[in-house]
Computed example of a mutant assay.
Amino acid sequence: MTCPLCAASVLPSDSFCEACGHPLNAPTCTACGTPTVDPEGYCERCGLRQPSARDHEEAALETGAAGVTDKGLRRIRNEDAMALLEAGGTTVAVVCDGVASSPRADEASAAAVQTASAALAGGASSEEAFKLAFRAVADLADDPVNPPACTYVSAVVGGGRITLAWAGDSRAYWLPGWTQLTVDDAAPTGEITAWLGADAGPVEPHVRTFAPSEPGLLCVCTDGLSGYLGDGVPDAGEPQALARDLLKHALDAGGRDNVTVVLIPVNPLGGTDG
């Protein structure tokens, strides 16, 4: 046997090449066919970044809710994450955006989404789910100076009522009309002032519960979409098709960031903000 990277002789029992240090159980590159893919997903022989299941994902529920997340046109990987599920007649959505300046931002968003969505589906309050997600992201830190981090927004929809919780600049909107339902945690210069991570300090989520008076769509998204809102952006339609149209809009406008959008149809029972 020989090392696929440097061609030095190796033994069947070896885990690493003694000559160059290459792991001998590395994944196989989809382009050149050699097992030389490094932990970052790049082939060390031909340089190709390997496609990831997170590059583009879609979700849809029988209730009509749907979502899509995509790495966009300029990022090397998708550091957004989303969850969309139904539990006991309630629709739960969680969307997180990994902070690009932090390491392992994709892991941060995934940990927050998985933890919070499971908690909300199990009956936890929006505040409780946020705290669990915060802890899950903080626990990823191996460097207290520059730990993994992400923004956060969750939605729980049921009985004609909507409960939102958020920190950072991931947003929720009411459609049609693109009425913003959240307020960004951001400085005038654009930097976020609240996030999930070991370096975030004490963070309490913003929580808003209300009952819309008319049918519509709740949109939960990252700034990969909200950064491209303006005239001509579609705001009505079947959720799965509309989610794809909104992704296409963001990509056609430049796709400079990861893009995530979740749409939930809401049929209100009446009421006002509570």
Rank of each mutant, 00 (worst) to 15 (best):
Y173T: 11
G98T: 12
P51V: 03
D257I: 09
D38L: 08
L269P: 01
P265E: 12
A53M: 14
A26M: 06
P234H: 08
V207R: 02
P188H: 01
E40A: 11
S15Y: 09
D169K: 09
T193V: 02
L181I: 08
A253Y: 07
S9T: 14
G98W: 09
V157M: 14
Q240H: 15
K131V: 07
D199T: 00
C29Y: 04
T2S: 15
T272L: 13
V233Q: 13
A253V: 05
C150Y: 13
V99W: 01
D106T: 08
R49T: 10
A138V: 00
G72N: 02
P39Q: 07
R77F: 06
A194T: 02
D184Y: 04
K71I: 13
L24E: 12
R104F: 11
T34G: 04
T189H: 14
L217D: 12
G270C: 05
K131D: 12
D14K: 09
Q240C: 14
W195A: 02
E204V: 01
G67C: 03
S117N: 12
T30M: 13
V68K: 02
S226Q: 01
P144L: 05
W178C: 05
E58W: 04
A187F: 12
A93W: 03
L24M: 14
T34E: 14
F16A: 11
L5A: 11
K248I: 09
D223I: 01
